[in-house]
């Protein structure tokens, strides 16, 4: 290969390097922490808590800008799209649940969505958060792609909302397990609904770990909540302004 040509393509090469290195680091850390979690089963050893902390430390130590990091690992986040599609299979397998309990499920979705938006609004007002941040916090319990659409529509910052959505998912998935253990719940329906509603994809994924049926309900409620919230977003905008 001509050396001149090689130098000429250097920016291209650097982009490839960034993608390779940071994807490798992210996937590697994820696999390691997964193995670690399998050995030491504690709520704080879950890969979604350990891996980002290690990543933040590494990016800070290597003086890497987040914009560079995300350029290299954006394709991993894009896989959330096909992952949403993949939820069709468990939902289809347990479609009889929807037919049987559609009333309870719709009550859960409507009530839970209102609770989620209202709690964010009142808590943010109580501690004195400025307007844009408060609006960005509102759609945080629905899955990322939905939440970003809604956030933009009601006057928040979609990028910030994505971060809040993910923090909510991490916390909801970890806390949900604990809460449902302590609450005197009798139905799998209620466990699945609260996982799916409060912690979207992260909650559904956690719910799958616990029980197949609970996971299915969580996934279903997550999707229904997302659609319901997109539908009420214009209404919300009218109320807020």
């Amino acid at each position: 290969m001509n050396f001149e040509l090689f130098l000429h393509y250097r920016p291209w090469l650097m982009a490839a390097e960034v993608t390779l290195i940071w994807s490798f680091v992210t996937i590697g850390l994820y696999l390691l922490s997964k193995r670690f979690h399998r050995r030491y089963k504690k709520w704080w050893t879950t890969p979604i808590i350990i891996t980002p902390i290690l990543l933040i430390v590494i990016t800070l130590l290597s003086h890497t800008n987040y914009n560079v990091y995300i350029r290299g690992t954006h394709w991993l986040m894009a896989l959330l799209g096909p992952a949403t599609v993949a939820f069709a299979i468990p939902i289809y397998r347990r479609r009889n649940i929807i037919v049987l309990y559609w009333k309870t499920l719709s009550i859960g979705v409507v009530f839970g969505s209102i609770l989620s938006i209202a709690s964010a609004w009142f808590l943010a007002s109580a501690v004195g958060i400025d307007e844009t941040l408060r609006l960005s916090l509102l759609p945080r319990s629905i899955s990322t792609p939905f939440a970003m659409v809604i956030s933009g529509e009601i006057g928040g910052v979609p990028e910030l909302t994505a971060l809040f959505v993910i923090l909510t998912g991490i916390f909801g998935a970890s806390f949900g397990q604990l809460a449902l253990y302590w609450l005197p719940l009798k139905s799998k329906l209620s466990m699945g609904a609260s996982f799916g509603l409060a912690a979207h994809v992260a909650g559904s994924s956690k719910a799958y770990e616990l029980d197949n049926e609970v996971g299915t309900i969580a996934a279903l409620v997550m999707v229904l909540t997302g659609i319901f919230n997109v539908l009420i977003a214009p209404l919300l905008e009218a109320i807020l302004s």
């Binding site: 009550i107 989620s116 941040l133 916090l137 923090l167 916390f171 449902l180 609904a193 912690a199």
Partner: peptide, 29 residues
């Protein structure tokens, strides 16, 4: 810290509230 507190408290409210209302309506229905 404030945002983290809102997210934590809010998520707890949503999880507990949704679980209770679904459980309640499930047994009613």
């Amino acid at each position: 810290l404030k945002i983290l507190a809102i997210i934590i408290v809010g998520t707890m409210i949503v999880i507990i509230g949704t679980a209770i209302i679904v459980d309640f309506s499930f047994y009613q229905l």
